[in-house]
């Protein structure tokens, strides 16, 4: 009972409307492919930054829905973000955690810490309005409209299939310059789209 990054992002794309989406790690690859938009902001190379980038956007743009496409390891890096998101309590805020239980998903598939971590319980304990674990595309499809129509912040932990990892015959890549400039470029594009460029 789980889905892959692309299946999950396809459902998010279908329902996003004019939502601002911050994203990181493997969810970044999927949302970029499935739902390209000037309203997307990648936290790269900055593992852990997506949740509070989304919080800042939600504070400044309270009329718009904000979706955070976080990773499980990424959220563990900045777990304190749950506290301030719950304090601010942005109403139209959905925090997805793509939980594949890995570091470097699809590349090295190294284990992450926290085998017993319950992200939904932590979000509720921090003060999120709701939290649920979703394991199928159909369940995500059914849940998302109601989440968009009710006050958040909402946590949605997605059970994501771990992809096959590269083999030892597959060399690690030389990252392109784009990896290091896209955050600034996407920031500029989002500001143009929002009319906040300065």
């Amino acid at each position: 009972m789980s889905m892959n990054n692309y299946e999950a992002c396809a459902v998010i794309h279908k329902h996003r409307g004019d939502a601002l989406i911050t994203n990181t790690m493997s969810a970044m690859m999927a949302i970029t492919a499935v739902s390209p938009s000037p309203l997307n902001l990648a936290s790269v190379p900055l593992m852990g930054g997506a949740s509070c980038l989304g919080l800042g956007l939600a504070i400044a743009q309270p009329g718009r829905p904000v979706m955070v496409l976080d990773g499980d390891s990424s959220l563990l890096l900045e777990l304190g973000s749950l506290a301030q998101i719950a304090d601010v309590a942005p109403a139209r805020f959905i925090h997805f955690v793509f939980n594949n239980r890995l570091q470097f998903s699809g590349v090295a598939n190294l284990d992450r810490p926290g085998r017993h971590v319950d992200f939904c319980a932590m979000a509720l304990a921090a003060g999120y309005a709701s939290a649920q674990k979703i394991g199928t595309v159909d369940a995500l499809e059914q849940s998302l409209p109601a989440l968009l129509d009710s006050d958040g912040p909402h946590m949605v932990e997605l059970e994501i299939i771990a992809p096959e990892k590269f083999t030892k015959q597959t060399p690690q890549i030389d990252f392109p310059d784009l990896q290091f400039t896209r955050m600034g470029a996407e920031k500029a594009a989002m500001m143009e789209a929002l009319g906040t460029a300065r």
Binding site: L46, G49, L53, G56, L57, K187
Partner: peptide, 8 residues
């Protein structure tokens, strides 16, 4: 990161 989101 919260400040960057606010700025955007």
């Amino acid at each position: 990161t919260t400040a960057m989101g606010m700025y955007i």
